[in-house]
Design a protein around this nucleic acid. Structure first.
Lengths: 198, 198
DNA sequence: TTTTAAACTAAACAATCGGTTAGTTTTGAG
DNA sequence: CTCAAAACTAACCGATTGTTTAGTTTAAAA
């Protein structure tokens, strides 16, 4: 949750020099590149361009900032999902979503993978429930969108739909891992093969 | 590198109470479960059952211990590769390797993923070259074994071999990611679909 | 048994971690 | 203008990080 926003009838002595949405995006990118533990408050201060005090008054704690970063990440990812939902193509739409994800993770030569899966493993036990929850929520959403797309082919049984949706979902995990290591040609080739039997 | 081993003509006042191979394996498992940063020397002391001093005299630093853990991990992974090499099956042999990997990562209900890919993202920049090197070395090895297996089908062109080997390699990355999140049924289903189009 | 050097224990190291707080600056309502 | 309260700066907090070191124990060679 973001910091307290005063209502207009109270006096408002000073305005923030920074935009919380903007700085949280910078924090998100830092977590995405370096993971949770490796990203120190010092690094966050520098990257976000604001003081520690400001970070704490806006986000409460490092964990709080990280959670806000995850929300920010998820919002960006949701835009890709919305594009997929809006697409008139079914299987080809999903394929395009795979390509969109590569572009989304790209930094210079390689991608940053997926922020959630990147950090899910290293996070302390008391935060794991939260991130696991976020992850399962997200995977369910994506799988459902995949399934809806696949159902446009009415010749497919519901069992097959379920199976193929799971298959595509896990393939997405492979892709997100792979963006950090493999080049564009290899990734394109990977996607081509994934969709061969759909 | 392990600690100094004195030659037999020197006097040997006292023997180590622990076996370096054994304790490095315990360290490896801890890194595998928790990642690099989250795993503290304190946790390592407890898990390895030896004192900090002993860890430092044997492995020099936390980084040194981690590198040794990676080597240990790679050795275990190599055993799976050797099994695959020895197999008379070609594509089915690779499929079995996928199943073997799931069993390899399994802890209780879910898997631990791949130690290298789990930690590659969170590691500090000065260590990244090393782990990236290890990773690319490993991926090249695995890809070559896959390619050799695929070549047993002489109807396939070298272009197709190359393409399919890459495809299988990246699919392995997906699998390693997926072991941490998806259940056995979903993983089996995933593997089934991967091999459908080969 | 004596000797000696490595293995061990435990306390302490500086540095950094996430987080706080006292004090100053700023700004807009009254 | 005045002034109150939030935004800001910077120094500081205890705890924990990885690492070292002084001192003790131990076991094998002489």
């Amino acid at each position: 949750m973001f910091s307290f926003v005063p209502s207009s009838n109270l006096i408002m002595p000073r305005t923030k020099k920074y935009n919380e949405q903007e700085v949280v995006e910078k924090a998100m990118n830092l977590f995405w590149r370096n993971g949770y533990e490796t990203t120190s408050m010092q690094m966050l201060e520098k990257e976000m361009g604001i003081n520690k005090f400001s970070i704490y008054s806006s986000f409460g704690s490092k964990d709080g900032l990280f959670m806000e970063s995850l929300k920010c990440y998820k919002q960006k990812l949701n835009k890709l999902i919305e594009t997929l939902k809006a697409s008139s193509d079914d299987v080809m739409g999903i394929k395009q979503y795979f390509y969109d994800f590569i572009a989304f993770t790209k930094v210079t030569d390689f991608g940053k993978g997926c922020l959630i899966t990147n950090t899910a493993n290293e996070i302390r036990e008391d935060c794991q429930d939260c991130i696991k929850e976020l992850l399962s929520q997200f995977t369910n959403d994506v799988k459902e969108v995949f399934a809806t797309k696949l159902r446009q082919d009415t010749t497919k049984s519901e069992t097959i739909i379920e199976e193929q949706a799971d298959y595509l979902l896990i393939s997405m995990f492979g892709l997100s891992s792979a963006t950090r290591i493999f080049n564009k040609t290899q990734l394109d080739n990977y996607i081509k093969n994934i969709f061969k039997n759909l």
